[in-house]
Simulated scan of single mutants.
Amino acid sequence: MTFSNSLTLWAGVLLILSITLWSSATAQSDVAADCCLNTSDRRIPKKFVTSFSIQTGDGPCKIPATVFVTKRGLKLCAPFPSDSPWVTELIENIISAPKTKKHMGKKHRKQ
């Protein structure tokens, strides 16, 4: 009878240990990803867009997309560049746009 109790105790310890290790490994891999879940083919005016990034279908983000960031910081999901000509054109406009320097300091008044 002692052998049976000892075996049950060891089985319980192993079960608790394996659950603890499994939940720890699962918690470490549950990193939230900021992904586009779908895309819209609605054109985005270039005057609203400041930057972009490409989301491949690899990793945690399952669909390929282009993520445009607006002046207000909104992220808009558009089709992958190879799937939509307007996306490619908007990306080229962003890349070729001259970087403007904002005037720092006080405005000068005309006297």
Rank of each mutant, 00 (worst) to 15 (best):
M1P: 10
F3V: 11
F3H: 15
S4Q: 15
S6A: 13
S6K: 13
L7V: 04
T8C: 14
T8R: 14
A11H: 07
A11V: 13
L15C: 00
I16H: 00
W22S: 14
A25M: 15
A25E: 15
A25G: 15
T26F: 14
A27W: 09
A27P: 05
Q28G: 07
Q28H: 07
D30V: 13
V31N: 05
V31P: 07
A33W: 14
C36F: 12
L37E: 08
L37M: 09
N38P: 06
D41P: 14
R43E: 15
R43G: 13
I44A: 00
P45Q: 09
P45R: 10
F48K: 05
V49D: 05
T50I: 10
S51R: 10
S51C: 09
S53D: 10
S53M: 07
I54Y: 01
I54P: 05
G57S: 15
D58E: 11
D58F: 12
C61K: 12
K62V: 10
K62L: 12
I63K: 14
P64F: 03
P64N: 02
A65S: 11
A65Q: 03
T66D: 09
V67M: 09
F68R: 06
G73S: 02
L74F: 05
L74M: 08
K75Q: 11
K75I: 03
K75F: 02
K75R: 11
A78M: 02
P79D: 14
P81K: 01
P81S: 06
S82V: 02
S84A: 10
W86V: 03
T88N: 09
T88M: 11
T88Y: 09
T88V: 04
T88L: 10
L90G: 00
E92S: 08
N93I: 01
N93Y: 07
I94N: 08
I94Q: 07
K99M: 00
T100G: 04
K101A: 00
H103Q: 00
M104S: 05
M104H: 04
H108Y: 06
K110C: 14
